Simulated scan of single mutants.
Amino acid sequence: MHECLPQSYEEQAVTYAFVALRAYLILLKMLPNYYKHVCSHENTLITKFFGLHEITLKGGRKVRFVVMGNMFCTELRIHHRYDLKGSSQGRITSKDEINENTTLKDLDLSYEFHMDKSWRESLFKIGEKVFPNGDRYAGSFKGLLPHGKGKYTWSDGTVYDGEWDHGKVTGAGNFRWTSGATYEGEVSGGYLHGCGTFNGTDGSIYRGAWRINVQHGLGRKQYCNLDIYEGSWKEGVKEGSGRYDWSTEDTYIGNWKAGNMCGRGVMKWANSDMYDGFWLDGLKHGSGFYRFSDGGYYFGTWSRDLKDGQEHSILLGAKFHLYQTGIALLGTM
């Protein structure tokens, strides 16, 4: 609804506003119930409509407008008038144009909100609450909800100590579960979300990004057997680029998918063997280059960790390696 009034009408008992077709149809639909309500509640504070009209101008264009009570019709002096639409685009008046008859806009409104001290103290307070199920919260409240910093202890012994936002675990804090697992870091909406450190009951440690309670993004995990993975995670599993160091001193650097080596990657074993090529589900698969600890090489293709017979022999002085369908032959020239 857009108000478009001649200045002379604004001080009168009624005012006019042009309406679009959609608003016109909505008003038509609601008028019967509106009329009954106003008749039953003569002191209602809702806008009083006196008429809804549609006229056809010369040329055939139709104009629709509503006649309603003017709340500015008063004997009191009105110092400022505002036409507020909740918008900032073009919603400011040039200071040179402002006088008592100017209708100001959104960005012209400057105000401060003051709350009674007793209300403020009742809304923002520190205390303790025990719930019927045995849960307990101690900390800051906003109204009836935990807000700010506080400690929540569940009836099963799980503890969260950290920040809250309107009753939800949000901000930074730490969890301690009865199983012995712990988490310290960012949380949001009750979830492990952001960056944080998780210590598992098996002795594993994960430091990195989380999304809704699972590892997601970049992170580093040290397993209970001292293996270490550092790289990308997706929904709790290794996926993307990363490095895995086994406690046996084997190392893989490359791509991962669904928790397995998949795509291009380089594997180095503790005995100095090395493979540079493609992987599938943790197995050598596709084209690749294998270098043996004794200096021998293999160029060829692999099928699920087995050489498929399409090979190249590399001479090593008086020795050579020949591979056929996964069988290695060693001979002399």
Rank of each mutant, 00 (worst) to 15 (best):
R91E: 15
E100V: 03
S88W: 11
K58V: 11
V67N: 05
F50R: 01
T93E: 04
V67M: 13
Q89E: 15
K58Y: 08
T56W: 03
I55W: 04
K48V: 10
R91F: 02
E100M: 03
I46T: 10
R77K: 15
I55E: 15
T74D: 05
M71V: 12
K95P: 09
T74V: 09
D96T: 14
N70Q: 05
E100W: 00
T44P: 02
L84R: 06
N99F: 00
V63I: 14
R61A: 12
R81C: 07
K58F: 07
V66F: 03
H80R: 15
K85S: 09
R61N: 13
S87H: 11
F49S: 01
M71E: 11
L76S: 13
M71A: 13
K48N: 10
V66P: 01
I92Y: 12
T56F: 00
L84S: 03
H79K: 06
S88D: 13
R61F: 12
E54L: 08
L52T: 08
G59C: 01
L45W: 02
H80E: 14
V67R: 15
S88F: 08
R91H: 03
E97M: 12
D83L: 12
G90I: 11
K62P: 00
V66E: 01
K58T: 11
R91S: 13
I98F: 07
T47L: 15
G59W: 02
R64Q: 14
I46S: 07
C73G: 09
L76T: 01
M71Y: 08
G59A: 00
D96I: 08
G86A: 06
E54R: 13
N70W: 04
F49V: 14
G86I: 03
R77I: 08
C73N: 15
N101F: 03
T56R: 10
D83Y: 13
E97N: 12
N99R: 01
G60H: 02
R61Y: 08
G51S: 07
K95V: 10
S88A: 14
T44I: 10
L45C: 06
L57A: 12
R61E: 15
H80K: 15
H53T: 10
H80Y: 09
T47I: 14
T47H: 04
M68F: 12
H79F: 11
F50M: 03
T44G: 02
E97R: 14
Y82D: 09
F72S: 12
H79V: 11
N101K: 10
K48C: 09
C73A: 14
L84E: 06
D83G: 06
L57F: 12
S94R: 11
D83N: 15
M71I: 10
N70Y: 05
R81L: 04
S87P: 00
M71W: 02
E54W: 04
S87C: 13
R91Y: 02
E100N: 09
Y82Q: 05
N99W: 05
L76K: 14
I55G: 03
L57S: 12
G86P: 02
I46W: 03
Q89L: 09
C73Y: 15
R81M: 07
I78T: 15
K62N: 10
T93W: 00
I98D: 05
K62W: 04
I46G: 06
F50H: 15
Q89N: 09
F65V: 06
T93F: 03
K85V: 04
K48L: 09
H79C: 10
F65M: 06
Y82S: 07
K85P: 01
